[in-house]
Write a protein that binds this DNA or RNA. Structure first.
Lengths: 189, 189
DNA sequence: AGGTATACGTACCGATCGGTAACATTGTCA
DNA sequence: TGACAATGTTACCGATCGGTACGTATACCT
């Protein structure tokens, strides 16, 4: 095969379709059709559609932390600037025309059932994000670091959702500004 | 019929199933089965499943504003206390074991397609919520009322999502506290 | 060249999807 | 009683769902 391996093509196409239209909205037939492969190829690389969705999210997880760590690395030792950099970027992304929020968050909404493969990946990602935000809040010297960390998480999740609800010009564009105000207020006390 | 009208029973069951498990996850067969009616009855009361979903959300919209206005009415002329009351209640609800967030928000995530009947209702609700939050922020005398109103919306949406992602003990329980900090910071300048 | 393992395609499975046609039954009210 | 509207019943539609049995082609190694 000159083409990349079937499994990789499938994951690439699935990632795109799942993110843009939702996991439940996309059938395996459409995935294999757009990937130019056949269904048995999908089921040789992935044990089920649910596991394919989980694989999509695991890849999403990697890319998410790459973006996060990029913002962190840009401002060594300055957690407040790290947060600002990360949120500024999120704020910009939410203003793009076909922004669809966070694949992790969306998957958790689509699969409320506890223990679903996709949801497991999503929950783990969010738990880790919460942990890191709280740690950064503590590093900033916040009086109540856990509350500030959680507040930042709420703003971030709100930006993900509002971004896809309101489109360009929506409330998500102010996420960095609001986060900064919240940080300022939390450091003062 | 001794029972309430078929259409009402269907809507009641659909509302429960759609909210808890998601709209795409529930088939019309399950709705009519749980409602103790038959499929033709559903399609005599509702032109399609999508319209049934929209009806569910229109009812949700009514109940949402009832809760909102209740918090408003409890503190006449004091928008800051109104917000606090509303958010305190949201924060409590998110800590309940099988909390599933906001039906409006979830529907918008499930149906990204622009113009879908369910999404239309959801978007209208969120636009109005944004309008009112900004108005309340202005009434508080915030320097940048639109930014504060949007910040409150981000916190609220974040609470809806985090509530169903993290369950009890999650970040959503701090939504009222963080909103108050944000308001405080926004009034100072 | 031949063997072998791996990858792929054709064709199909039963179940469920949203939705409907045709007709029987019921309660209400004139 | 008779007409009407609402609900019930049964059976069905084509399309799509996730998933698989089974035969074929290709690449590599000896």
């Amino acid at each position: 095969m000159a083409q990349p391996r079937a499994g990789e093509r499938i994951l690439r196409v699935a990632r795109d379709l799942f993110y843009r239209q939702g996991i439940r909205a996309i059938g395996v037939d459409e995935i294999v059709r757009r990937a130019g492969v056949t269904k048995p190829s999908l089921y040789r690389s992935f044990p089920s559609k649910d596991e394919l969705a989980a694989s999509y999210l695991r890849q999403y997880d990697l890319e998410f932390w790459a973006r996060f760590d990029e913002a962190v690395a840009a401002h060594p030792g300055d957690p407040r600037a790290q947060i600002a950099a990360f949120l500024t970027r999120i704020g910009k992304r939410t203003q793009k025309p076909d922004y669809r929020g966070c694949g992790m968050t969306n998957a958790a909404v689509e699969y409320p059932e506890h223990g679903h493969p996709a949801r497991v990946v999503s929950e783990a990602n969010k738990q880790e994000l919460r942990r890191r935000l709280r740690a950064m809040a503590a590093a900033m010297g916040a009086g109540d670091a856990d509350t500030l960390g959680d507040g930042l998480l709420l703003l971030i999740e709100g930006a993900y959702i509002s971004g896809q609800l309101f489109g360009a010009g929506g409330p998500a564009k102010s996420v960095a500004r609001n986060a900064d105000l919240l940080i300022e207020a939390s450091l003062k006390k």
